[in-house]
Design a protein around this nucleic acid. Structure first.
Lengths: 133, 133
DNA sequence: TTTTTGTTTTAGGCCTGCCTAAACACTGGC
DNA sequence: GCCAGTGTTTAGGCAGGCCTAAAACAAAAA
């Protein structure tokens, strides 16, 4: 349950794009929160064992965190593709990210299977962290 | 943003089913929260002018609240129909309710237009407040 | 090496949402 | 009219998530 998933997903994407560890600043920009809030959240994620957090360095997903994040990512990609190909909505990364944490795996799965080209088409595009600017 | 929408939607459904005012107990059952939490939430909704709240009586939607709730309801119904007819998932009221507060009106709208029978088919079924028991 | 700059962290506060336990109100049976 | 039972509200607490302002740090510039 809740808003931490956004951070987790962002860390996942950032690790993919650049490399671990992911700096708080990067994450803060991506989720559009203050640096302070981000530090706190990363610490909380660390408490739960989802990331390893090194002060002044950044966060690195643990195996457990990576697994959770990967599921989120799948859902995120599915939603993004659904928005684009079915609803005709581009650039809905922000909403997709938000929803990824709420949509159940079952629904995500069914949704994925309704999409054309069920095979993995690779990352949907580039992973700019555009917040809803 | 957030969890109050669930309460609002429940009040809307309850008013539809029975009559205003809606008792805290009814709402509490529907959202699967403690009576105390429910009272608090209804009071908060009252503070925001979305319901009128009469102690020991219950909540009644204000015009403003009704408008907000109606939008939520539309989204809820759309999601429910989508789950059923497209994803083949019945009884996903709980998830639909949760998502109704998160999905943007735009997405809800597009989603609705992808569904068969775009005309209003009436309420999707009965409105039991099954929580995820 | 010292200063400056940019980033990160801590401190202190606030609001939301939830809980349990205890007080309170209403209703129906006696 | 009183009392018990059910439902509601208040009190007190706790956790999550966010903010701003101030302190701490790291690294590059001087």
């Amino acid at each position: 349950m809740s808003d931490d998933s956004q951070y987790l997903l962002v860390v996942f994407l950032a690790e993919k794009r650049d490399a671990a560890p992911v700096s708080p600043g990067t994450v803060a920009d991506a989720v559009d929160r203050s640096p302070a809030a981000t530090t706190e959240m990363l610490q909380r994620l660390a408490d739960r064992g989802l990331v390893a957090y090194e002060p002044y360095e950044g966060a690195t997903l643990t195996p457990e965190g990576r697994e959770a994040a990967a599921e989120l990512y799948d859902t995120y990609v599915t939603l993004l593709r659904f928005f684009e190909t079915v609803l005709g909505l581009d650039d809905h990364r922000a909403e997709a990210m938000e929803l990824a944490g709420t949509v159940s795996p079952l629904v995500a799965d069914r949704l994925a299977s309704t999409l054309p080209l069920d095979a993995d088409p690779g990352p949907p595009e580039n992973h700019q962290f555009v917040s809803d600017s």
